[in-house]
């Protein structure tokens, strides 16, 4: 029971990390119809910058703020140098260019920080554990991540649901050409979405850094998961991305143990040992395929 609770919490926490990465990406996808494969590198760059900022200042908070702002600035720089020129071009050109950016930035990171994995320590204030039932503890830091993730999600819901710019974003996601024709500067909106999106991904990278090792390629699989989240949630829908992110997080943690347990219960031990892990690692993608088979536009697709 306690184990299930721990896994559910881990699932929610993974889901919120995914949400922070996916939130900006889904708007860029939805509003500008722009495929940005390089969005994941912001997450990696955020983590690396945090390590450097932390080494220089010794303060986790300073590292968090500094690295998030710096990744936001990097996002704006990339927008001005590359993305702006790819607006309105086919998806294929965008895939080619952003894949090129993944290679370039990944190698730059290796050049600057070296190839060996780096560590960012958990801030001392948050290093304890909260006791759960039957003597097991759950790290305070992970609980903090859940709280921060929910707070950011709440803030975004407020901005998107209650403000003028949020209204324009929602309108842009369902029909960008019409919004542009009505006098909204869609390019300015794109810059905003892009900068904030990059900052959020960098923010997620900093927060995740104490839990993983900071290395080139740390974002590769998360990028794919973020795409899964976006597509399952429905391109352009932040609410969809939130729900899909939590679902994907839970499927990946709870689903994994459930499938392994089911395989053990239903199959002979030899076969279960093979099928269980295989099915567990495929589970997210099975989930996505199932959702798209039933709802080709995702759970909350905003485009008609």
């Amino acid at each position: 029971m306690t184990l299930l609770l721990v896994q559910a919490l881990n699932g929610v926490q993974l889901g919120l990390t995914l949400f922070l990465i996916a939130a900006g990406l889904t708007l860029v996808f939805g509003v500008m119809d722009f495929i940005n494969l390089a969005h994941g590198v912001q997450y990696m760059v955020g983590a690396y910058l945090a390590v450097s900022f932390y080494d220089a200042s010794g303060s986790f908070l300073l590292a968090l703020v500094g690295a998030s702002l710096a990744t936001g600035a990097l996002g704006l720089l990339l927008e001005a140098l590359v993305f702006r020129r790819l607006m309105g071009r086919g998806h294929l050109d965008q895939v080619l260019a952003t894949f090129g950016l993944i290679l370039t930035i990944g190698e730059l990171v290796r050049l600057i920080w070296g190839t060996s994995p780096l560590q960012l320590p958990v801030p001392r204030l948050l290093s304890g554990a909260v006791p759960l039932m039957s003597g097991m503890g759950y790290p305070v830091y992970r609980i903090m991540l859940i709280v921060v993730g929910l707070a950011v999600a709440g803030l975004m819901a407020l901005v998107i649901g209650r403000t003028k710019i949020g209204m324009q974003l929602r309108a842009g996601a369902s029909n960008a050409a019409m919004v542009n024709a009505l006098g909204v500067d869609i390019h300015r909106m794109f810059r905003l979405v892009f900068g904030v999106g990059a900052m959020l991904a960098g923010f997620a990278g900093v927060l995740a850094a104490p839990l993983v090792s900071v290395e080139a390629g740390m974002s590769d699989n998360l990028l794919i998961l973020a795409f899964v989240v976006i597509v399952v949630g429905g391109v352009g829908s932040v609410r969809g991305a939130f729900i899909a992110a939590i679902l994907v997080g839970l499927v990946d943690t709870l689903g994994r143990s459930l499938v392994t347990a089911l395989a053990l219960a239903l199959l002979p031990p030899m076969a279960a040992g093979h099928v269980g892990p295989a099915l567990a690692s495929m589970l997210i993608y099975l989930f996505m395929a199932a959702v798209l088979a039933v709802r080709p536009a995702g759970l909350f697709g905003v485009r008609a």
Binding site: H91, V235, A297, G298
Partner: peptide, 18 residues
């Protein structure tokens, strides 16, 4: 093939990941 555009790109990716 039930999906279009970005979703087609992503679902083919998902199957390959499987």
């Amino acid at each position: 093939l039930r999906t279009r555009g970005v979703n087609f790109i992503m679902i083919t990716l998902a199957f390959a990941q499987m």
